[in-house]
Amino acid sequence: MLLIDCPHCGPRSETEFSYGGEAHIARPLDPAALSDAEWADYVFLRDNPKGLIRERWMHAHGCRRWFNVARDTVTYEILTVYPMGAEPPDLPERRYP
């Protein structure tokens, strides 16, 4: 079970949070200009790393705020928590075979 350090409420159980998937995906400014393949990439393609992932969480049963988390998908270690809209922190890449 994850203990997620909510930036407003402190460490809380994962059951209080909802998951928002990969972070830092920019919505295309002009969707109509995209090809079908580009649109499919935007809608369906997500990073699925075995290692470091940057993802969005929302403290649904708490302060109800969104924030970003950098997490290891193998050890489940939460490396850092940072606000929405912030640049992703510079962390050493982690890859597992």
Binding site: L2, E14, S18, N48, K50, E55, T73, V74
Partner: peptide, 13 residues
Amino acid sequence: DKYVGYGQRGSQP
């Protein structure tokens, strides 16, 4: 589990 993971155990809740 509701989040991406490669741990072959699953979340306790």
